[in-house]
Each structure stands twice: as C-alpha cells, then as structure tokens.
Amino acid sequence: MTPSRDLFPDRAAISARHPSIMAGSRREQVIGWAIMGLLVALTILAITRLEFSFARLGSGLVQLGTFLGLMIPPSPGTQLATFSKALAETVAIAFLGTLLAAIISFPIGFLAARNVMTNRIVQFMTRRFSDSIRGVDTLIWALIWINVVGLGPFAGVLAIMTSDIGSFSKLYSEAIESVDRKPSEGVISTGGSSLHAVRFGIIPAVLPVLISQTLYYFESNTRSATIIGIVGAGGIGLHLAEMIRTFEWDRVAFIILMVLATVALIDFVSSRLRLALVGQRVTSV
C-alpha cells in the first residue's frame, strides 16, 4: 500500500533518501498492476464469452422486479400441509445424512491422519479418496443414488452422506493431526498399545472438536437438503422448483421464508448444543 501523492509532496526527496524502501514499494506496485490487468482481461473475456449484454440484464431485471411484486404477500395457497411435510423431510434428510457421514468418517479420519497412520501409502490413498468425493457436488451424488435406491428422500440421505464423508474425512484428519502428542506418548510409555494411545490419548482431545464441526455441518446440510429435491431426491426442493416453473411466485416466497426460518432455528439449536456439549468438556479436558 503506497500512500497517494498528495499526502507526500516531497516524494522525490523521500525516494532519494530511502532508495531501498521506495524501490521495494515500486516493485509491489508493478505486481499489483499486473494482477489488476490480468483480472480485468479475464473479466472482459468472461463477459464476451458468456454473452453478457446490458439489454439482457436490463430486461431480466425488469422481469425480476415483476416477480418480486408478485411474491408479496407470500402465501402457501392450499398446500401448507404438503410444504410442511416436505420441510420436515428436508430436516430429516440433513440430520440422517450428517449423522451417517460422521459415523463413517470417524475411522477414515484416523486413517488419513499423518500422526496415527504411519503407513504413508494408506494415508495418501485415503486423502485422495476423500478429495475425489469432495470434487463431486451433492447434486451429482443425488443423481447417482437415485439410480440405486429410486426417487425419494432416501436417495437424498445417501447423497448428503456421501458428499459429507469427503468433507468430514478431511476436517477430522486435520483435527487429529493438530492434537497434542503428549497424552498419547504418555500412554505408550506406560505400556499401552497404539490402539490404547488412540483411545485414551487422542479421542478425548479431538471428540469435542469433531462434534462441533459436525454440528456446524448439520446447519449447512439443511441448506443443501433444500435443493436436492430439484433432481428428485426428496425434500422441499421439488416443490420449490415446481412452483418456480409454474410461476406461483407467492408460494415460492412462502417456501423460501419457511426455509430461512428453519435454517435459523437449526442454527440456534446447534449453536446451543455446541456450547452445551463442547464448552463444558473443553474446559474439563
């Protein structure tokens, strides 16, 4: 960050007095301009290639304004019961998906942690395995699971589970790697096996961290679970997509509000739970 010229009228004199500092800042300036140029060039390329035009944006915004007008007041029409049931399904999908993923990822996290898994090949393979799972979006997993268990919320549970296994394995293994080594070394030095070291040296320390991360994901999974219905994997997404396609804007607004309220509620509950479960134990460990 170089100050602007007006603040330093004697800039030339300063440069003469401190050539090394000023030269450094000039190099930074050149790099800064180069990065800016690259960003602008990419933006122009993207705008032309993706066919952005002011006419299109303008007419779209006008349309969007009309939709917004039609969204007020939000109303469920006659389908309040249907929507509520679908929303419950969404929460159930998120809950089960997160829980199953947490259970499955728990051992995988240890396999991928450098300080537990001394076999480099196994550790490397586990890492790449979880990387590939994370590279595929939840919606794609939903499509694949639909082929296996058919349309419906069960496919959604499995989709959330699969994509979370990728994330959890990574998060868990990072948490395990950053754990203090002293307790497990102590267990080993008193004659415990490496399994004992994991059970009494590592798990008590990482469990609160893992639980807190899992609860955090429960909230974000509720959001993911609202959309997997778009491809037919259960939950509120199916109704949402249908209402958007049939231009029932007041119902769209109502569903979105329902989702917002549910996510806020789950956020509240999970942060309270996190405090209750983790707050206590972290201090006592």
Binding site: R56, G60, Q63, F67, I230, I244, R245
Partner: peptide, 8 residues
Amino acid sequence: LIFVVAFG
C-alpha cells in the same frame, strides 16, 4: 432457478 426464468 428464478434467474433462469427472468434472464433466460
């Protein structure tokens, strides 16, 4: 989904 309807 909403923007596809509005912007094409």
